[in-house]
Nucleic acid binder design. Structure first.
Length: 204
DNA sequence: GCATTAATGATAA
DNA sequence: TTATCATTAATGC
């Protein structure tokens, strides 16, 4: 089933509400845990990860966003600080819109509001499925759960045609597993033809 | 060369 | 069975 999926907000429309373009270098932090949310962010080109660290200092990645995707938007509707960080993974261009302008844009453009609802619902839906998979102690379930989730963002439905553009370390940080476990489990999955691997690139 | 990523083995929990 | 630690190979700048 193809949904309306996460349509980005039109750049010209954002600009007409005085959005600004910002560029970030690799490893720059867009916002930190505890910051107050002042902007709607949308990626024009690049890649951003949403993460935090547990008591032992181990990283957990909540999500990795790519071109056209927004992030941090749920915080704009409620009076809370960010519970996570947003870190740039590679040189990235972002368009950002101040909170008040964003609220006005939503109010004055109902179709955008609807699309945003669809987008947030989509993410919530897959988050739920992810949580279920994460509760499993079976690493294959965790990994396939993650891949299904990532695949839902892309527009391809065919098996083994979705290229997972993540390092094994990133997969580990997204699933809460160790990188060695990812490597060994991916090999197992390749044997069971759950994934295909060409030159270390994983296709699901 | 150096840094990052991937792979593998041994051992502990 | 997975986590942890050590080591080595492969890759990219």
């Amino acid at each position: 089933m193809k949904t309306i999926s996460c349509m980005k907000i039109d750049e010209q429309l954002l600009k007409s509400y005085s959005a600004e373009i910002k560029t970030y270098k690799e490893k720059e932090i867009i916002f930190r845990e505890g910051d107050s949310p002042f902007f709607y962010f949308q990626i024009i080109e690049g890649s951003v990860k949403i993460n935090n660290y547990n008591e032992e200092g181990k990283e957990f990645i909540h999500n990795i966003l790519g071109n056209g995707q927004s992030f941090g938007d749920p915080m704009l509707f409620i009076d809370k600080q960010y519970p996570v960080n947003a870190v740039v993974l590679k040189p990235t261009t972002i368009i950002r819109l101040p909170r008040k302008n964003f609220i006005n844009l939503i109010k004055e453009n109902p179709h955008v509001s609807l699309e945003l609802n669809a987008c947030l619902s989509h993410r919530l839906y897959y988050k739920t499925i992810m949580t279920q998979n994460m509760a499993s102690h079976n690493p294959i379930k965790r990994i396939t759960g993650l891949f299904d989730y990532l695949k839902s963002y892309s527009d391809c439905d065919d098996t083994h045609s979705f290229n997972v553009k993540l390092t094994r370390q990133q997969i580990a940080d997204l699933t809460g597993l160790r990188v060695e476990t990812i490597i060994r489990t991916i090999k197992k999955m390749e044997k069971d033809s759950l994934v295909k691997v060409h030159e270390r690139k994983i296709c699901y």
